[in-house]
């Protein structure tokens, strides 16, 4: 289960809508407890894709490096990446799957005509195929 703090969910949805018709992207930080993952912080990064940002996203290596450094410095776990699918469902594409990393949660936000439609999370299994990861949104950080 991916448990997303309310403010983090709001932040990601706003980023997805404001970036429309381009894809947005960012990192999710938090902690793991047994089978659950708690997203307590999210950070938007620039979609560095050269070309069609309406259909593709890419995160610059230096932004990734900073995200890892930030997680280590703040005793957080880099849990995964979020991005939006403008005018497409929140279903992981073959492009998403090919580029996906093990361990990470991939949150996809569907935005239809500029308005949030749905949010889903995906994780790779041992066969490098995506499996849907349930999301809970009611979590409010006690920190």
């Amino acid at each position: 289960m991916l448990i997303i703090e309310k403010d983090c969910r709001r932040y990601m949805l706003r980023d997805a809508e404001q970036s429309f018709p381009d894809e947005c992207c960012g990192f999710m930080f938090g902690r793991e407890e047994d089978e659950d993952r708690y997203v307590t912080e999210v950070r938007q990064v620039e979609n560095a894709k050269e070309g069609d940002k309406r259909r593709r996203f890419e995160i610059a290596p230096v932004d990734y490096m900073r995200a890892e450094q930030y997680a280590i410095a703040n005793n957080l776990t880099l849990l995964g990446v979020y991005h939006s699918h403008p005018n497409h469902p929140a279903i992981a594409s073959e492009t998403d799957r090919q580029a996906a990393q093990p361990f990470f949660s991939y949150v996809i936000i569907s935005v239809m005509n500029g308005v949030f439609s749905e949010i889903r999370s995906w994780r790779l299994n041992e066969d490098h195929l995506f499996e849907k990861e349930p999301i809970a949104h009611e979590f409010i950080s006690q920190a």
Partner: peptide, 12 residues
């Protein structure tokens, strides 16, 4: 030395 996986994707 940082090992950095490429992070990318898209809607189709």
């Amino acid at each position: 030395v940082s090992i950095i996986p490429a992070i990318a994707g898209g809607n189709a």
